[in-house]
Design a binder for these strands. Structure first.
Lengths: 152, 152
DNA sequence: GTCGGTGCAAATGCTTTGCATTGAT
DNA sequence: ATCAATGCAAAGCATTTGCACCGAC
């Protein structure tokens, strides 16, 4: 009923650049917004897809930046903590990541024959998740949904 | 039209013991049904849950068997190929596994506060998966669905 | 008796960490 | 100037592999 109240402290400014979000978060934690971190976030935005640490480093190199693996991994962790990216688990070999800030879905359709990955939109999934949590008396925190399919 | 034909060679005998399934598969591939492999499958059945390689080895030890990690991993791979178990990806740290042969669901509800894992039953998910694949003109191969939730 | 299987220890590959140096604030 | 961040190389850890010996068929 009190929909106008300010119970939730997070006011998302929809079109705020991601780098500003990241910068703010870092400042709040007493951490620094370095060129490396800025470049890594830029590269992630350019990739605009599910990516692995190595691909990210490649993209950085392509843009003319050399960042060490150590820094890549450290920054990926920071970005996860900031809620900007999320791990995507496709297999046990290595972790992948995906931009999630300001985006609703991260449900994936994975073509096992071509390794192509497509985002799918399934609003009823959210309802389903909420219903299941309600039945268990729990609060929904998130979900991971992947469909594996092959062509023709 | 020729539904009575023997196009599909697999005739699943519903209550056939898993070890028989495994044994048959191994024989078909010219591989051997060793005590280690039998014990590993037994231990998996006893665990009856999502498990990691280390837990499996512990269960084996508890039953009085010493099997090397190498053999554990090699057998886990065989069991996956045989369609008896499946990897469950909960985090990037390590792989987990789960018995799937003869079981429909492997959808999980994960309590982030207690790390408890519960299987959930959601038949409408299957329909959803099939519909999405149909829309993309692809054949459904499998799915991975996990809900993350917290108590109270 | 033959191959395939096992254990061991070494190798692998992704990810993390210790440390001296560099740099954002 | 300070304190966190970087790069490098070494360490960690789950998983895989090479090889000599063993055992299921």
């Amino acid at each position: 009923m009190s929909m106008e109240s300010d119970q939730s402290p997070l006011q998302i400014r929809i079109h705020e650049p991601l780098c500003a979000v990241f910068r703010r978060r870092l400042k709040a934690e007493g951490q620094k917004y370095t060129p490396e971190r800025a470049q890594i976030l830029d590269a992630i935005i350019k990739l605009d897809d599910v990516f692995e640490a190595e691909q990210l480093q490649d993209e950085l190199r392509r843009s003319g930046f050399r960042v060490s693996k150590a820094t890549v991994y450290r920054t990926l962790k920071l970005l996860q903590d900031a809620g900007i990216i999320q791990q995507v688990l496709l297999d046990a070999e290595q972790a992948r990541y995906q931009l999630i800030y300001g985006r609703t879905p991260r449900d994936l359709l994975i073509r096992v024959d071509t390794n192509e990955i497509v985002s799918i939109d399934a609003p009823e999934l959210t309802e389903l998740c909420e219903r299941i949590c309600r039945e268990h008396g729990l609060a929904l925190q998130g979900r991971r949904f992947q469909i594996y399919a092959a062509g023709d």
